[in-house]
Structures are given as C-alpha cells and as structure tokens.
Amino acid sequence: MTNPMAPAIYLRSAVALAGRFPVLAGVDLDLDEGSVCVVLGANGAGKTSLLRLLAGLVPLASGEGAVLDCSLPGQARDLRQHVGLLGHDVGLYDDLRPAENLRFVLKASRLDPGLSDDALARVGITGRTASTPLGQLSAGQRRRVGLALLLARRPRLWLLDEPHASLDEPTRDLVSELTEEAARGGATVVATSHEPDLAIPMADTVVTMSGGIIATRAPGGRRGDRGWSDVA
C-alpha cells in the first residue's frame, strides 16, 4: 500500500484558479489515510474547488501538494484513477440504465463488471428502478446510483460534494453509513456540507473554509473504535 509516514493529503499554500479568479487562495491541509474530513463554509468559499483540486481535475497553480503519494500538479493523471467524486450531478449518462452506467465505469477501471449488481442492491436500486434510464430517476435515486458507483469502484479517496443535500432521511443515513464503512476500509474521505448537525458526527476533522483558505480546524465526532450507530 502506501508509505505509512506520508499523509494521504498534504497541501501547503495551495492556489487554484478558475480563469483569472483564485478559487483557492492558499490552502494548508493535512489528512491521514483512513480519516474522514468534513469541510464547512458558505457558498463560494472554495469547497467544491478544493475537492476538484484533490481529485486532480484542477491544476495546482502554486504552492505544494501531494495526494495519495502523487505530487500535484505533475502526477494528477496518476492520482485520478484512485479518486471517486460524487457531486450534485452524479456524472453518469442519462440515457443508460444504472447497471449499464456502472458496468461501463467498472470496465473502464479494469474491475469486474459483475460488482455492479451487489453495489446497486446495497443502495436499494433494484427491480424496475435498476432498469430505468438514469435520466428518469429522481435526484435522490441518482445520488444512490452515484454511491453505488463509489462502492463498486472502491477508490482510495472519496470526495463527496454535499452528500446529504436534498436527500430523504433513509438516504442520508445511507450516506453516513457508507462513508463510515469506506473509512474503516482504509479510504480517506473528504466531504463538504452545509449541515453541521449531520456532518460533524461522521468526521475526524472538521475544517471551515472562507475566502479560498481554511479558516478553522477542529476535531469532529467520529471515533475510529465506535460503530456509526453509536455516534448517531
């Protein structure tokens, strides 16, 4: 696996640009492998840009950065295949069924396409829902498909952009449950949120972003030795 000494995420004065605008204006962040970090902050604080930087999708304009032993911006390409990103838009094909979407992604990642059925069953996408084109599913169901994708792909870094937003109670619980499971399996999780009540209990670390930098950092409510249900 990885070098135990190196943190999963290491950023120093990281700056990222959108055109000429500095969306990230000097972020410092260290996270250990297998930890869960929740990022709070107002709209436009740079939360989503931070996730995209960590995914290797936005180049590091200045500063230092290394994610999963890949230095940024040089090794962003190598980094990407270890990253799973789930945003408001799940980034799948509307014309394809959930299972077809998953099988495409799994084949592209050189994984067994058969994993898709278990993953979909786990998030409750079965029967008719599973054979409906993704475009006709509700926002919550689509998010579930996105979660199934993460489950099946098992990336080493989970990046969740407001995973709890606009979801019903059971789906929110599912998000928290799967996140906890992933972290226990050794994955590093970074999630943005506008709902501290839901997000803080699942986190080892809670950071607040503002103006493209990390303003505060505090421990969260997650304890590695306790099951998720205890915390909830």
Partner: peptide, 20 residues
C-alpha cells in the same frame, strides 16, 4: 498586467477569508 491583477485578487480573496 493580468499577473498583477491576480496577485491583487489573491490578496482580496484571502482578506475575505480572514475577515469572516
């Protein structure tokens, strides 16, 4: 010129972060 602008934008953005 745009580099100068960028430096200014960076400072403004950081100030926004510190102020809040």
């Amino acid at each position: 010129g745009e580099d100068v602008e960028l430096t200014r934008a960076l400072e403004a953005r950081r100030a926004e972060g510190v102020a809040s």
